[in-house]
Design a protein around this nucleic acid. Structure first.
Lengths: 201, 201
DNA sequence: CGCTGCTATTGAACGTCGTTCAAATACCGG
DNA sequence: CCGGTATTTGAACGACGTTCAATAGCAGCG
């Protein structure tokens, strides 16, 4: 009779901490992609990767932290998608339209995961996560660079970027929640083009 | 004539069904105003009005239904606020700016309750509540009427209304979640005016 | 008055959830 | 080989949304 019947505790050694964090983030992203924020739970997430919930607490943190990890990944993917839409050969105006197009295409391709970035509202007392500001400005700076030839004044350009960014966000947000289709049958991409073209004159 | 002490079960008779529904909606709105969606719970809501949770299930429904009631009230209040911003003596362009201003003022005055309208995402299979579409179009029709002299073509105007509406929603949404301040220090109302003025040319 | 439904109201229960605790195991530097 | 540290877990805790079965008041009717 071996005294060491495996009790289940102790390290497994089949991945390091970073790999485990990535495993958690990917599994969480998959759950959200299939069932939205409501489908993401600690116990379900743990079951999906074959671990006990406590291991996630140990390596990542609570559920809010998991959501932040997924959102960080999403913003990075969005950034890459927008970079790919910019062409040095195109006019600034065409590039602006292309970026808007790429934004809405990204949202349409992965609406649940994108929505998570904005559905998640942090507690009003806790400060804003610093990586979010960085990832966000990193992305909006793209738009800023695109508009630089059209709006030379830095202040004016910053306001324009923020306004256009918010406009695109509004279109995408209302679109994914099916609240835009109530108003008009046009696909949101057409409205985004309309927005950018009319705003830039 | 002292009333008999409550013995636990049975009707109280101090309000009819409609009054009780209004009581629930107001208490829920208060909870959301103070602590956001996360602060709205069935047990807390019941405790706030001095009833057992089951009474809310009996008279209103589950928590999603309660949220819908609050949101219906909010859209009605928003509609009234926008109506008050329109002046028959003003130009269409000034009226459009005034409506945008009133929208953002409404959001700033009650950010948590307004956010509830958009934070609440219904299950993807369930159909859209018909009262929402009515309340929404009732409000956007206001904007449509304002823009009628400026954009005579109905199709073009409908697209413009939807785009502007989404743009305002985006500004308000990013503002209440403190994600707009990361991009620019301008108050969202300035950006809203910028949006409307540039969009309308 | 008594009877009979009907509705409002409740305490208790059920299952689930996020999170924490304490213990047990494996790995690693001495 | 040994002690500390990191990983992993089952079990427990409290709270949650929701449902169930029972009870209390009320209205109508004889």
């Amino acid at each position: 009779m071996t005294k060491t019947a495996r009790r289940g505790t102790g390290p497994r050694g089949d991945h390091n901490r970073e790999e485990f964090q990535a495993l958690v983030a990917k599994a969480a992203e998959g759950l959200v992609r299939q069932e939205g924020l409501r489908g993401l739970g600690m116990r379900r997430l743990a079951a999906a990767i074959g671990y006990a919930p406590n291991s996630i607490y140990n390596a990542v943190g609570d559920l809010d932290t998991v959501v932040l990890r997924v959102n960080a990944r999403t913003l990075e993917r969005l950034h890459d998608a927008l970079v790919a839409a910019i062409s040095d050969a195109a006019t600034p105006r065409d590039n602006a339209v292309s970026v808007a197009d790429a934004y809405l295409a990204f949202v349409q391709a992965d609406p649940q995961v994108w929505s998570l970035v904005f559905e998640h509202t942090l507690a009003p007392d806790s400060a804003f996560p610093e990586w979010y500001g960085q990832a966000l400005t990193r992305t909006t700076d793209l738009v800023d660079r695109v508009l630089q030839p059209m709006i030379p004044d830095a202040d004016e350009r910053r306001q324009a970027v923020a306004t256009l960014w918010a406009g695109l966000h509004g279109l995408a947000s209302l679109s994914t929640s099916r609240k835009l289709a109530v108003l008009t049958p046009e696909p949101p991409r057409d409205l985004a083009r309309l927005l950018v073209r009319r705003f830039l004159g």
